[in-house]
């Protein structure tokens, strides 16, 4: 008996060590990137550190200014301008795809003819390799004489990419909760809009938040589909497309400063999501209790 418990705890310890090692592999590269972003002006994008400086951070915030340390072939795009465009785009994409996916998820609650075909059409947005979508639409726009831009063609493919994710999130939501509650509210005298606003939406709140988070983060990072669809100048590119372009030229620690900045931004967005999620789930719990109680009384 003693032997088995001892063996068990040994394997338990091994498992714990294992996940710590995997976590290190997941997060250690971020730390390295942050450290190297403080590389000295004469240092490169790998170790060793040649002095410590905020030089590359300064360059991040002062794009296009050549200095005594500037190199030939250095990438001079304005990362922060691109970041601004990407943030605006991500916000619009998150809202648009959440609304359209929520609408469609309602339709999927009841079986209808062709539901599989529609569902798999949506799923193609995830399945079809991004670069092929980019190429196909780029060539079509080219034929039509339309110049791609981040506010039009890039928006179109971003929403295409996020919509299926948001749909799946809401389908999971409807699987989780039986919305008999809606019927109950209707019986107790609410009109359909009231039933929707006061009963269905509060229950769905956690899923709406998840959908917004997925829409926002997936769009903020999208580059495969929008690669050819943000326009040809640096002034219309989104951040990921600009990063793609810069990596094929010469990599400087400015890229690490940028990566550190955007990662911190991502963490902030995730923290915000978790904060609202906890609040929403508390509220949903309260809403469910409130709705169920009169029902219980009625049955008694």
């Amino acid at each position: 008996m003693e032997n088995t418990t001892k063996r068990f705890s040994l394997s338990g310890a091994l498992f714990r060590v294992y996940i710590v090692l995997v976590l290190i592999m997941l997060y250690f590269p971020f730390v390295i990137m942050a450290v190297l972003s403080f590389q000295g002006p004469r240092g490169g994008h790998t170790f060793p550190l040649r002095e410590v400086s905020s030089w590359w951070w300064w360059k991040l915030f002062h794009p296009g200014q050549s200095t005594e340390f500037s190199d030939v072939g250095e990438f001079l795009g304005n990362y922060l301008g691109a970041l601004g465009r990407s943030l605006v785009l991500a916000l619009v994409v998150a809202i648009l795809s959440t609304i359209m996916a929520l609408m469609a998820a309602h339709a999927f609650r009841k079986p209808f003819r062709g539901s599989n075909a529609v569902f798999y059409l949506w799923l193609l947005g995830i399945i079809v390799p991004g670069i092929t979508v980019s190429l196909g639409l780029f060539l079509v726009l080219n034929r039509l004489g339309i110049i791609p831009n981040w506010t039009s063609s890039a928006l179109a493919v971003h929403v295409m990419w996020t919509l299926p994710f948001c749909l799946i999130i809401f389908l999971m939501g409807f699987n989780r909760f039986d919305l008999d509650l809606e019927d109950a509210a209707l019986v107790y005298g609410a009109n359909p809009l009231q039933a929707y606003w006061y009963v269905v939406l509060p229950v769905l709140q956690p899923f709406i938040l998840s959908s917004l988070l997925f829409g926002f983060t997936l769009s903020l990072d999208e580059f495969q589909r929008s690669l050819l669809l943000t326009g040809t100048t640096l002034e219309t590119q989104t951040l990921p497309v600009m990063i793609m372009a810069s990596v094929t030229t010469r990599i400087t620690p400015t890229l690490y400063a940028l990566g550190t900045l955007t990662t911190l931004l991502s963490f902030a967005v995730i923290a915000l999501y978790i904060f609202f999620l906890i609040r929403a789930e508390r509220k949903t719990g309260e809403a469910l209790v409130e709705i169920r109680e009169p029902k219980a009384e009625g049955e008694a």
Partner: peptide, 14 residues
Amino acid sequence: WTSYLTRTITWLPM
């Protein structure tokens, strides 16, 4: 939920 692109870049100095 962080950037795939950035996560790839973090492997450069490794």
